[in-house]
Simulated assay, not measured.
Amino acid sequence: MTNAAIIILAGTESHSDTGRLVNGLEAAKEFADDPEADLELIFDGAGTQWIPELEDEDHDYHELYQSVSDDAAACDFCAGAFGVDEAIDDAGVVTVDDNDGHPSIRSLVGDDYEVITF
């Protein structure tokens, strides 16, 4: 079994940020499609801003996001810091706060997850 934690850190400001997001979602989809894999998809930092955008059905990457959104979570602290906490709540995306309001990377490593950042 493969354990993968894909962490989206890229913001929404540039073409390169969009590229990092799409690469992260494609990697997440590859793991999600593998019945032998366990996926954690975490939007952290500026990456939390993507969730409201990707929830829009007209967004170019909405379908790709939807294919992995059941595995998605967001940093609780960063959702508030970037002003998207209500939108993340409305989307039904779980927030994680097990390390002073942030996701615990140490716990993921301790649980044998490969941590991959985009």
Rank of each mutant, 00 (worst) to 15 (best):
residue 56 D to E: 12
residue 56 D to H: 08
residue 56 D to N: 15
residue 57 E to L: 09
residue 57 E to N: 08
residue 57 E to P: 07
residue 57 E to H: 10
residue 58 D to M: 10
residue 58 D to T: 09
residue 58 D to L: 10
residue 58 D to E: 14
residue 58 D to K: 09
residue 58 D to I: 07
residue 59 H to Y: 08
residue 59 H to R: 02
residue 59 H to S: 10
residue 60 D to E: 13
residue 60 D to V: 09
residue 60 D to F: 10
residue 60 D to H: 13
residue 60 D to C: 08
residue 61 Y to Q: 15
residue 61 Y to R: 02
residue 62 H to W: 05
residue 62 H to S: 08
residue 62 H to E: 04
residue 63 E to P: 03
residue 64 L to I: 02
residue 65 Y to T: 03
residue 65 Y to F: 15
residue 67 S to Q: 11
residue 67 S to L: 06
residue 67 S to M: 07
residue 68 V to S: 00
residue 69 S to K: 09
residue 70 D to W: 04
residue 70 D to A: 14
residue 70 D to V: 11
residue 71 D to W: 14
residue 71 D to A: 15
residue 72 A to T: 04
residue 72 A to K: 05
residue 72 A to W: 03
residue 73 A to L: 06
residue 73 A to E: 11
residue 73 A to H: 08
residue 73 A to G: 13
residue 74 A to S: 15
residue 75 C to E: 06
residue 75 C to P: 06
residue 75 C to W: 03
residue 75 C to Q: 05
residue 75 C to G: 08
residue 75 C to R: 06
residue 76 D to I: 03
residue 76 D to C: 14
residue 77 F to R: 15
residue 78 C to V: 07
residue 78 C to A: 15
residue 78 C to D: 12
residue 78 C to M: 12
residue 79 A to W: 01
residue 80 G to W: 04
residue 80 G to K: 02
residue 81 A to Q: 11
residue 81 A to C: 10
residue 82 F to W: 11
residue 82 F to D: 00
residue 82 F to I: 04
residue 82 F to E: 02
residue 82 F to Y: 11
residue 82 F to R: 04
residue 82 F to C: 06
residue 82 F to S: 02
residue 82 F to N: 04
residue 83 G to D: 10
residue 83 G to I: 09
residue 83 G to V: 12
residue 83 G to A: 09
residue 83 G to W: 07
residue 83 G to L: 03
residue 86 E to Y: 05
residue 86 E to K: 13
residue 86 E to L: 09
residue 86 E to S: 09
residue 87 A to H: 03
residue 87 A to S: 08
residue 87 A to W: 00
residue 88 I to G: 06
residue 88 I to K: 01
residue 89 D to V: 10
residue 89 D to G: 13
residue 89 D to E: 13
residue 90 D to T: 14
residue 90 D to Y: 08
residue 91 A to K: 00
residue 91 A to G: 06
residue 92 G to A: 07
residue 92 G to L: 05
residue 92 G to H: 00
residue 92 G to K: 00
residue 93 V to A: 05
residue 94 V to A: 15
residue 94 V to D: 13
residue 94 V to P: 10
residue 95 T to E: 07
residue 95 T to Y: 07
residue 96 V to W: 01
residue 96 V to Q: 02
residue 97 D to I: 07
residue 97 D to E: 13
residue 97 D to P: 04
residue 98 D to T: 11
residue 99 N to Q: 12
residue 99 N to E: 14
